[in-house]
Every structure is written in structure tokens, then in C-alpha cells.
Design a protein around this nucleic acid. Structure first.
Lengths: 210, 210
DNA sequence: TGGCGAACTCAACGCCGAATGAAATTCACA
DNA sequence: TGTGAATTTCATTCGGCGTTGAGTTCGCCA
């Protein structure tokens, strides 16, 4: 967060001191992509916000797609929802999971790269695939062992849909009153529905064809 | 749907026959915005798809924002979910509503303008506001009279979040297996959760501060 | 202390975007 | 039949986009 010394006039060539531009660019990219989505963002604006020439972005990351990939995968990897959430009584699984999830989203710092993916996934095939994979892996990981294996994938995506819906309504489209309700209320409202997707008996009627 | 006669070389000036370009542009705009979102779309591509010069788009709609507004509001107005859904036993409300909702989304024709709004709302303030209003009005309208008035807004947005989540996962991000499950199964899975948001007793604990 | 490679900027290219004003053609109504 | 309004294209402006290549400065190791 410590800002660079003033950029009144800058000369070409390497800057004195330790080189931190690469990280600055990455953080700037996260902000910009989070705010505008992939198509709406420009390399030049990222550079401007990182207080750097646009050519440097290409020097480090090769292309706009390159920065995007680096920016999201940089902060998406350490998801690690699973460990602490998994043990405890199965009836509280949804609530623990939701609390963890909301904690991440309430921190602007952590919210940024996830926003970037969602904003981009909506009109960008690559980002969409990345998000799809993330949902599958992450949510499915939570269900292994707690849920009959044959229905796990459907259950997982249902939970995923409820979570994404929450994000859309609360953080992106900002529909009131849900956008400003406190998280505790949110948990009380949502946890039971999610718990239902996780552990209620399989839907009656014939099962979906294999 | 009847395609225009071949456009090998065209001369300036009004074309012979009845003028349908305005409608052609509107339909083209719906497709393009639905596929690429607002930022990702270009007036030129809309014009190309409508088989028309780009200047004509500006002639009719003034600006890119103008086409967008026209394209979505054109096909968003006749929502009319309410009438048929509302009467019948209250316990089946969610299911009737969901069926109606899915029917609209399964038709590519009707899906287009809604896709356009969602794809755009994600990175566009104006579209987001429009979508927010739509959710509030439309879903809330269904609840009037069936639900205690004091909790109706929260309930409505919760239902909205579940529906948007469904759309995201099924039609936009396309997460399997939910993306290819048949609608009947989808109803069986989702209706109970929605019904719960509609009619279950208010969440316990203290109510959210007024 | 010299020099090589990493970090950085500058200037420019080619392209495509939204938007505009003028000219050409057809329509509709008197 | 004629004449004004509506529709359509063309040519153009202006700006910003992603990307590249050459040149400059600094850190570091031999």
C-alpha cells in the first residue's frame, strides 16, 4: 500500500531500489478487472494505476490475456475452504461453509480477484470455464464423504448456484434490502436452504438418466 | 426471419419497399448484446448483422447506449408473470412460478434480451440498476397478498438470488451437470427451496433493525 | 571495476471504436 | 405530378486500443 514516490517526470531505464513493479501491476490488474470485467478493462488503465508504462505490462505478462490469467490465478489458488469446515456435525455443515464464504467476500481485499472472475466470466469463454471448474472442484470437495456419491454433483452445483446468486444480488447487482443486510441475518436466511441441498433425501420420482 | 435480398453492392439512399431496418437493428442488437455484453459489443457488429450501415444505427437510436436501452426495454416490458401464477393453492406457488420462469428461459427467442441485461449488468451501472429494479418489481409483485408484508422484500430478494444463481450456473457459466439437466428435474430440485423462502415462518432470533 | 542482463520508458504502428455531416434515394401526400 | 420528409449510405474525424522495437538506466556478479 505504500505509494511510490511522486511520478512528476520519469526517465527511461530501470528505477533505483528494489523492483516491485511486477507486483504493483498485478494488484492494479486485480482492481481494474474486478471493476470493469475483462472486455471493459484496458492495459493502459492498469498501467496508469500501477504508475508504470503500458509497455511494461507486456514486458512482464506478454498480453492482456496474460495479465488476466496471472491476476486471477494469483489470488484464487489458496481457496482452502475445506479443512476447517468439514469436521463438526453434518447438520451444521452449510452454516460453517456459508460463514467461511461470506467472510471472504466481506473483505474487499479478498473479494477483488473473485469479482474479477465473475465479471469476466459472464462474457468471456475462458474465464467462464475457469469459474466453472472452480465451483465444481471447490464445492464438490466439501461434499465428499458427507453425501451419497451418486447425487453429489447435482447437489454441489445447486449449492453453487445459490452462492453465486447471493453474490450477484448482494455484491454486483446490489438489490436491496439484501445488499445491506448484515451477514448474521444472511446466514440465518440462507443456511437452511443450502443445508437442504446438501443432506435432504434425493428428489423423488425417477432419477436423471446416467 | 425472412432474410433480406442479397447485399452485394448497395447504393446510398432509401431502399425500396417497406422500411424494416429499425426492427432488424433491434433484433440484431439483442443478439449481440446477449452474446457479448455491453462493453464487448460494437455498433459496427450490430449494423453488420442487421445488414445495414453503422450510421443508420445512430440515426435511429442516437448512441450505443441508446440502442442498448431500446433493445432490452423492447422485450422486457411484457413480463406478466403474475396473473396466471398467483391463484391456486399457496403451497404450489413456487412451482408454478418456477415453471413459468424456466419456460421463458428455455426459449432462445425470449432468453436473448434477458441474457443481454444480465451480461451487461455485471459491468455496467445502468444495466445493473435496471436489473435490480426488474427483480424487485417482478418478484415482489408475486408475493403481494401471499406473504406477511413486513418480510416480503427480504423474501423476494432471496427468491431472486436463487433464480439468478440458477441462470448463471445453467445458461452463462454452464456448470455441469446442472447445465444439461432437464427442466422437470430442475423444478423438483429447486421448487422446495424457493417455496421455503416464500412461506416458511420468519427467521427466528431478533428481527433485522428497521 | 567492468560488463551483462534485468527493469524500465518512448515513440510509433496499425487497427478499430463511436460518432457526425452531407449527399442520394424512395415514400407519401397534396 | 411534384415536393418535403423519411430512410439510407459514404466519407471522414477523432480518439483510444493492444502491441512492438529500440533505447536508457540500474543491480549484480566475476
Amino acid at each position: 500500500m505504500t505509494p511510490r514516490p511522486e511520478s512528476t517526470t520519469r526517465r527511461p531505464g530501470r528505477r533505483p531500489g528494489p523492483a516491485r513493479s511486477r507486483e504493483d501491476i498485478l494488484r492494479a490488474a486485480q482492481s481494474v478487472f474486478a471493476a470493469r470485467g475483462y472486455e471493459g478493462s484496458t492495459v493502459r488503465e492498469i498501467a496508469r494505476r500501477a504508475d508504470v508504462d503500458a509497455a511494461l505490462v507486456h514486458y512482464f505478462f506478454g498480453s492482456k490475456r496474460g495479465v488476466f490469467a496471472a491476476a486471477v490465478s494469483d489470488a484464487l489458488r489458496p481457496a482452502e475452504l475445506a479443512p476447517a469446515v468439514l469436521h463438526g456435525d453434518p447438520d451444521g455443515l452449510a452454516e460453517r461453509m456459508l460463514r467461511r464464504f461470506l467472510t471472504r467476500w466481506e473483505s474487499p481485499e479478498q473479494r477483488r480477484p473473485m469479482l474479477a472472475i465473475i465479471r469476466s466470466a459472464v462474457s468471456n469463454e475462458v474465464a467462464a470455464a475457469q469459474l466453472s471448474e472452480f465451483i465444481t472442484d471447490e464445492v464438490l470437495g466439501l461434499l465428499v464423504g458427507s453425501v451419497p456419491a451418486d447425487h453429489a454433483p447435482v447437489r454441489a452445483t445447486m449449492v453453487g448456484s445459490q452462492l453465486i446468486g447471493l453474490i450477484m444480488v448482494r455484491y454486483i447487482v446490489k438489490v436491496e434490502p439484501l445488499a445491506s443486510v448484515d451477514t448474521e441475518t444472511l446466514v440465518r436466511l440462507t443456511a437452511p436452504a443450502i443445508q437442504r441441498y446438501l443432506t435432504t433425501d434425493a428428489p423423488s420420482g425417477r432419477s436423471p438418466d446416467p
